[in-house]
């Protein structure tokens, strides 16, 4: 079991290398009746081909919203989303459909993201045929089996229905669906958060292997900075719709600069009673510090958020 360690994150020069995905000054508004709330503001980041950016923050920080803008599910109020040199911020529905073969997604809820009335094979094939209608039936079947194989599942799975699988297995199927069109960027929106911790490790390993085999890029969204640390080359920390810290994984996790980042780091419990006791105390200190520095009221800081 001495697999090579992950290569250290390479610091790419954004000016020299054209990033696969570039998000600049992104803002998103949510309209509710007559009021407009700005939920994301001034968010910029790059993802270079083959790299993973971890986007971390609490629920309500806007991290999933950013993922949805990249996927074209939510409109941007300002700023730009540039994929492979092309501005896709306001792409037409037709162009968006074409882009689905480049940009794919794995959602958090493995129970809701697969239509219970359709077989696994039908779900996977549908995704593939939508991207390339010229494929023959035989080719489609072959690709379905191949993509199931990639995620470590046998071909006979294609005839079965989602309810027959556990959460971890369904998440593998969701990954197979995302990868069957051979995308270049995959948005992983809390892709492991709903799974048992022991199964999270399995799925994270799978995502890591696929990334290395196919030089995929991930936009990896999670509330759990420890989980994000395992897969990301760079991390962006999001607090109330704004990025408060970015850097390489080592920089952000080992030498956090922002009080909010330190708070997030202290929040994940470790399976060691002594260490956990220290963390708990650190969390209290960090929380007081953060509160003093920003005076902000977030779910993390205040117990009274509505």
């Amino acid at each position: 079991m001495t697999e090579p360690l992950l290569t250290e994150p390479q610091l790419t020069e954004p000016l020299l290398t054209e990033p696969l995905l570039r998000v600049t000054d992104l803002a998103v508004d949510y309209k509710r009746r007559r009021t407009v709330a700005r939920v994301v503001e001034n968010v910029s980041f790059d993802i270079v081909e083959g790299e993973t950016l971890g986007l971390v923050g609490e629920s309500g920080s806007g991290k999933s919203t950013i993922g949805n803008v990249v996927l074209g599910l939510v409109p941007a109020a300002a700023g730009a989303v540039i994929f492979d040199g092309e501005d896709i911020t306001h792409a037409s529905p037709k162009r968006r459909r074409e882009l689905t073969s480049d940009i794919q997604v794995v959602f958090q809820d493995p129970y809701g993201s697969l239509n219970p009335a359709r077989s696994i094979g039908a779900t996977l094939a549908e995704s593939l045929v939508a991207s390339d209608a010229t494929l023959t039936r035989k080719e489609v079947t072959a690709r379905v089996h191949e993509s199931l194989d990639t995620v470590g599942m046998v071909a006979s799975v294609a005839q079965r229905f989602p309810t027959e699988f556990s959460g971890g297995q369904r998440q593998r199927i969701a990954i197979a669906r995302a990868l069957i069109v051979r995308p270049r960027l995959v948005v992983c929106d809390e892709a492991v958060s709903a799974l048992d911790l022991s199964i999270q490790a399995q799925v994270l390993n799978l995502l890591d292997r696929l990334r290395r085999e196919r030089s995929l890029s991930y936009l990896f969204i999670s509330h759990d900075i420890a989980v994000i640390g395992h897969l990301s080359d760079h991390i962006a920390v999001l607090d109330r719709g704004r990025i408060v810290e970015t850097g390489t994984t080592a920089e952000v996790i080992d030498h956090p600069q922002d009080a909010y980042t330190r708070l997030l780091l202290a929040a994940a419990p470790v399976p060691d009673p002594a260490a956990q006791k220290k963390r708990r105390e650190a969390f209290r200190t960090q929380r007081a510090e953060y509160l003093a520095s920003t005076g902000a009221v977030t779910g993390l800081v205040s117990t009274t958020r509505l």
């Binding site: 992950l6 971890g168 022991s198 490790a201 390993n205 759990d224 420890a226 989980v227 395992h230 470790v270």
Partner: peptide, 23 residues
């Protein structure tokens, strides 16, 4: 042992995560 070892929070970054095979 395996359950504790496979907790992503406890593991060092870099390299394959320890997990329990199968279900």
């Amino acid at each position: 042992m395996a359950l504790r070892a496979s907790d992503p929070h406890a593991q060092k970054r870099g390299g394959r995560l320890h997990s329990i095979p199968g279900v």
